[in-house]
Amino acid sequence: MPVVDLGSASIRELNQSLHDLGPDTNETHWSVLNPRGAHAIAAGLQVPVTVEIDGHVGYYCAGMNKQAKVVITGNAGVGLAENMMSGEVRVLGDASQAAGATGHGGLLVIEGNAAARCGISMKGIDIVVKGSVGHMSAFMAQAGSLVVLGDAGESLGDSIYEARLYVRGTPKSLGADCIEKPMTGHHKAKLRARLDAAGIGGEVDVSEFRRYGSARTLYNFHVDNVAAY
């Protein structure tokens, strides 16, 4: 198992080594030591390898991830797994703002809390947060799901398009065009699948969640609003 100590190796050396891996590499499990809050660790991975980072990471960790599994044992800075395409990113601590921003696919699991704007402009990613999320989470969310076991901050799902938001606790407020929707058997099954994928299906009762989504009133221009422009 390759071990990269960022106390001696540079981020660029680490990331280049990871980018050089082919799809059939035998080096499928990497360990990264002493991240010390450095930025862009394990960003841009494209092959199905596992990278375990022992400590706190800085901005944009595991950004643009494809296929790889990235695990962070500490906290993550701004933009964790931003624009992720596939694979899995898991942080055992907290994530700063804009975690999972614009993500197209894959699974992001935050075992602690996520700060503001979690899942902003998400486009298909599934995000599971075991703690709470900050204000403006799922802002302009287009597709995918955001599951929050704790509470949500102000303006959850503001200007949301089509993503599904499941919150077990209480949203402080819902954003423009975000409404509560019925939790049917279909949605419970979907939520169960997300929780199972995150490895916590057995710990959580899906009937405790409420579902939020788009009222779809902002999709088209309404002539009654013409005076506002």
Binding site: R36, G37, A38, H56, V57, G58, N75, G77
Partner: peptide
Amino acid sequence: GSEFRVLA
């Protein structure tokens, strides 16, 4: 700190 690096 503005970033965790400050505290490392």
